[in-house]
Design a protein around this nucleic acid. Structure first.
Lengths: 187, 187
DNA sequence: GTCTATAGATCGATAGAC
DNA sequence: GTCTATCGATCTATAGAC
């Protein structure tokens, strides 16, 4: 048998898709083997900790993506706040496929799965909020104003994903992003 | 054995709690029997359709609650818009226990459960949006403005619940409700 | 209407060949 | 590193006594 047919990135991506679609408890190994193309043996070779370790790997991968594509720019004191925030919203539109893809961290947050991954779930949103506050302060807002606006943006994004999915209408998420963009420009 | 120890309302409430906490797939009959106090036999006597019928009953119960406590007042042409909207946000704070309780419809919307309950999930938010648009138009907004504001409020509520639960911090949801209240007053 | 017992399928996880 | 075979547990759902 050839070694390493499946690149780690593809496996993580397949895992993410299954967890997003079915949630943690609904993500059966049958679904996972189908999505990754790996048998159970291979999966448990790569993730000895089982489903918990698979989910943790996916969460770490998400963290890394947002760190690279969103948070770093928000933090960067040399990047104009407006540009960093615009880029953040563009990145969200891309990552969440304009509402066609839900946020795994949000999915985990809503169910009892949150208790098992509390640190990752909490950390993801905390890191995002802190970086966004940093950018908003650069744009001239007070700490209180910036925190309130950041909370509002995070809720808008997560809520936009929920409602877009409920209506099966991606344009809902796009309109929500537009509203957030406009609101951030006004402040 | 005494008949009808468990009132239908208590059973539905127990079911709702389990589905909210664990999602549809994670809501095992073991959890359900524990939460309702009913054995499997009793449950399948009351809900011959199994878990699907249990979930549908819970969704219908939620619909009825919001119809009675939120939508009707928003629709009522004799109720001042500001009063109806204030009442809606109060009802949300109460129903979602200031963020301590998540929205089952939102939970279902995010996972593949949505496909099985698409009509109920879609209808819940559609009814809410329509009623809210009605109230906002009474307050003087154009149809376009009212629709945009209504979408924004729905997303804010759902997103507020996601983030509050992610942070395990109910004050987050309360602040989001306050922001929505202020924003609606400004328009 | 409620229960216990249990069927039959699927679950997560492991063992061991290659 | 990947597979098949398989384990014991748990799952949804049913049957039948009371």
């Amino acid at each position: 048998m050839p070694a390493r047919i499946h690149s780690p990135e593809r496996v993580i991506q397949g895992l993410a898709e299954v967890f997003r679609e079915h949630g943690f408890e609904g993500a059966s190994l049958a679904h996972i083997t189908k999505a990754t193309g790996l048998g159970k043996g291979s999966l448990y070779h790569a993730f000895p900790g089982g489903k918990d370790e698979m989910a943790a790997a996916v969460l770490a991968d998400i963290d890394a993506w947002f760190e690279l594509n969103v948070f770093t720019l928000l933090d960067d004191p040399e990047t104009p706040a407006a540009k960093a925030i615009d880029h953040m919203l563009d990145a969200c539109a891309e990552y969440f496929q304009c509402g066609g893809r839900v946020c795994l961290v949000g999915v985990f947050a809503l169910s009892d799965t949150r208790d098992s991954f509390a640190e990752a779930v909490n950390g993801y949103f905390r890191r995002w909020a802190e970086a966004l506050v940093e950018a908003l302060r650069r744009s001239g807002l007070s700490r209180t104003q910036a925190q309130s606006a950041a909370e509002d943006v995070l809720a808008g994004i997560q809520g936009g994903l929920v409602i877009a999915r409920a209506f099966d209408d991606n344009s809902y998420f796009e309109r929500e992003l537009k509203r957030l963009r406009d609101r951030l420009k006004m402040t």
